[in-house]
Design a protein around this nucleic acid. Sequence first.
RNA 1: CGGGGUGUAGCGCAGUUUGGUAGCGCAUCUGGUUUGGGACCAGAGGGUCGCGGGUUCAAAUCCUGCCACCCCGACCA
Length: 575
Amino acid sequence: MRMTKLYMPTLREVPSEAEIPSHQLLMRAGMIRKLVSGVYSYLPLGHRVLKKVEQIVREEMDASGSQEVLMSAIQPSELWKESNRWDDFGPEMFRLHDRNEREFCLGPTHEEIFTDLIRYEVNSYKQLPMNLYQIQTKYRDEKRPRFGLIRSREFIMKDAYSFDQDEAGMMNAYQEMWDAYDRIFTRLGMKYRVVEGDAGAMGNGDSHEFTAMCEVGESNVAYCDACDFAATDEKAETIVPIAAQEAEEKELEKVDTPDVGTIEDLKKFFDMGADRFVKTLLFQAKDRVVAACIPGHREINETKLMNAIGVAEHEFEMADAETVKRVTNAEVGFAGPVGLDKEVEILVDRRVLEMKNFVIGANETDRHLINANYGRDFEGRVIDDLLVVRVGDVCPKCGKPLVMDRGIEVGNIFQLGTKYSTALSATYLDQNGKKQLIWMGSYGVGVSRSVASIIEQNHDEHGIVWPAVVAPFHVVVTPINVKNDEQRELAEALYEELKAAGVEVILDDRKERPGVKLKDAELIGFPIRIAVGRGAAEGKVEFVLRKDVKNKDEIAQADVLARVKEELNKQGLNL
RNA sequence: CGGGGUGUAGCGCAGUUUGGUAGCGCAUCUGGUUUGGGACCAGAGGGUCGCGGGUUCAAAUCCUGCCACCCCGACCA
């Protein structure tokens, strides 16, 4: 490819909308452009990278025995109604109708559609197990698209679905996908971690997330250096030791606490640690209000709470001030489990049962109750764990302190069980001629998100540093001065030689000054740069690796091809 | 959806407070000089100032409604 022919609009300045490195660099390197919020176009260089990531995913999926198909992005509402997700998915689903007012959506995921694909044709145990996948565009109307390709409303995903006779088969398929994902993310050169996740709207079995570790990640993972425990902060079980408590239950007493509405205020007012309080948080869940009582020094885990009360995320939010006033008869900040409006269900974190003589809101403005005790003063539904994990909490597996880090979820695997086969009646006949439900799993890789994640993990102050396996081109040949015949001719000769040898090479034949070409080469991040400059007269060129631009190696023209091959092979390409 | 902010040329921005002929840098085009780290000189093109309504002799600027985009929060590949 010649750069003069390539549509590669690089930018000197960072577009003001881009905040994080991958978004800024993808824009500046002329790889993507925004169409509208959360929707991007891929330009030639970005498209090449995307296709390479797709190809690695495809190869490993094929190697695992999964078969590629391609389903429509547009899906009829009927299937989603069968599984109840037409309502459960909520406003994140892009919905539309046809001219006859028939309802459709743009697929945010494809469990229903794949289940439908196989339910009429898979009838026998002899057809199982089976695993199908596609690499296709997904649509989710995110509340807040951001960070370029990391949270977009349209994105490329590889989604796979496994179909098995029984739970053991599903577990086996799950493990195979886990292994395939390990191979995929290893080949992509990612630093990643496999963590336990919350299944959310997908199903109720186990799930794991593959998380590319980086500072700008939106996932928080807690993990243990001493054992293999790793989980998202939503999922991680918390172990919260409760300090020794007073032996005797004291008498419940109402005290004036003027303008003391937060835990911080209470600590000062009573001169006590936050662990002597129980905070009561009110939530609007669908059409009802629930209260969660948790130790004052800890934070509520909304995911665990939603799971406990069985509502979907879009039906759940912190109660607004008006609701709080209605159910507590007090200003915000004085809610407590004693004397709360009867309509409010009270959920209590188990740790509260170990606490004695604690302070709670009195459901009266500027008043608190002291010496409250569970059982004697109030009761509720006890939940084992409603708390969010914190650095320094002990590992639930081995008891050592936990560490936390951020990352981007680039893959996930879910055990679906029979959720969708039940809803859509996907069954087969077993050896005894008996009808059985198919056991399913679903497995996603965010392909476009992986592209952004690779950049987050591979860039420097000059630009992107592509791993050779996904670089848009392997080598850029840069004649320093195209008006110099020797340089131009030598560069052309090298370009032809490398191209003929199967190297993906791009020739920077633009009539630009050297600075512009070198800056662009570093911005885009070609793994190898061959600059043809002063040495051209003696048949010498400069060989530079993008990951080590300081190190410039003067080599003879005759040695270039061998050197390029050697380096690319070292970086995992087979030439 | 809540909170904050921004919309002026392809990109980055000034101008809005105090209404009066729409500007700067980069990019683009022409000619010339230059060629190892985002050149220089001379010239040129490009904007219904997000959209609608209002106030005014006069609106990028004031008022008002809407829209889009970005950031912080809760969700996900």
